[in-house]
Design a protein around this nucleic acid. Structure first.
Lengths: 197, 197
DNA sequence: CTTTGGTTCATACGTATGTATGAGTAGCTA
DNA sequence: TAGCTACTCATACATACGTATGAACCAAAG
């Protein structure tokens, strides 16, 4: 019959969901093990500590996001077009906790988890590569690729949380599909204009 | 002689500093009262609860940021120029915890504190007003002012935390004054290009 | 069948948490 | 001077926390 996933896998899934939503400090070990239907000691046994589990979660979701960045960057198309596809992916892909977790960790006054730094390195590497390629072919303006890359990512990372902003402030209902398309179009247009030569 | 500030004021200052750095969940009542040199019961007595103190802090820092937005928006100058000044202010003003606190609360899956919503309303109102003014005089391109305003604020809000990103990833040392000028110039240029008609 | 190693379990521990509370203090007013 | 109010204090409370630990279980190997 169908076996349920092993305990470490269930812990990772439960922790990913809870850490993504509420952050490291607000999520307890008991809450994770309860969600995973595992024993209280399972986290310490399999991962060593709550913090180690947190790092394993970031490694998992971070690798997923970085893989998406790198894979879209490797597709065919003009650099600006591929940048648009990455931005669209960040804005529209469901179950993508990494952007929110990055922002939250950046907003905390504590060392960045190493797996998060690794993810950022890959993301920035992919984005900077596209920017350099566009600068080489003349489609993207001159400028520091790292700064341009950070500017590019700022908007989708933050506007991905647009649904959190009351609609009378945001001007859009972030949960409505047609306004999500409008948001995507807006962000892609804005980024393209700021990069174009 | 010089009197020290009253207890509620000391609690607000201590809480503002600690909540700004570490967020609501990671800061304890005992840590705040210790920093404020006040009694453990002082928070409950003066504010009602830890959460009420948190809201008071957001109200305080949020009003400050909104006041800065509104006051720069009311200065003389072209709309794009004043937008540049607001962006520069966000990136360079020391002791400005509101942007980080906004991002952190947006990244949490819980209701936004009411004072934070009020602050965002004022900030967006000021920014959208400038954008509409620019659209009216032809200097800013057509587009939904709310979306344009959110795109404008995404970059400085996020890149204000550039010093948190390891310099081999960010390409700049966010703590170095000359690279801060470079960062400001980059962000203002990027935003201006994405808005210009 | 026995042994072994990995895993799960229930419980315990020391510490930490936010809030509550009665006592004491200080300043003000009639 | 007495009464009152606002404030501060020290302590208590119930609950929660992350981690540790020995016992029990299970599957595989010899």
């Amino acid at each position: 019959m169908n076996q349920r996933p092993p305990v470490p896998e269930r812990l990772l899934a439960a922790a990913a969901d809870l850490f993504a939503r509420d952050g490291f400090d607000a999520v307890s070990v008991r809450r994770i093990t309860s969600r995973a239907k595992a024993n209280l000691g399972a986290i310490t046994y399999h991962f060593g500590s709550k913090e180690a589990l947190f790092h394993a979660v970031i490694d998992r979701v971070g690798a997923h996001l970085a893989d998406r960045f790198v894979s879209i960057a490797a597709e065919k198309g003009a650099p600006l077009e591929r940048i648009g596809r990455i931005v669209t992916m960040v804005l529209t892909e469901p179950n993508l906790p990494a952007p929110t977790m990055i922002l939250r960790e950046l907003a905390m006054d504590r060392p960045l988890p190493p797996p998060l730094v690794q993810m950022m390195q890959r993301n920035m590497g992919a984005m900077m590569g596209l920017i350099r390629e566009g600068q080489a072919d003349g489609s993207i303006r001159a400028g520091d690729p790292a700064l341009l890359a950070m500017s590019v990512m700022a908007q989708p990372f933050l506007l991905r949380m647009a649904s959190r902003i009351p609609r009378d402030i945001a001007g859009v209902d972030g949960n409505d599909p047609s306004t999500q398309r409008k948001l995507v179009k807006h962000v892609v247009t804005t980024i393209t204009r700021s990069l174009a030569s």
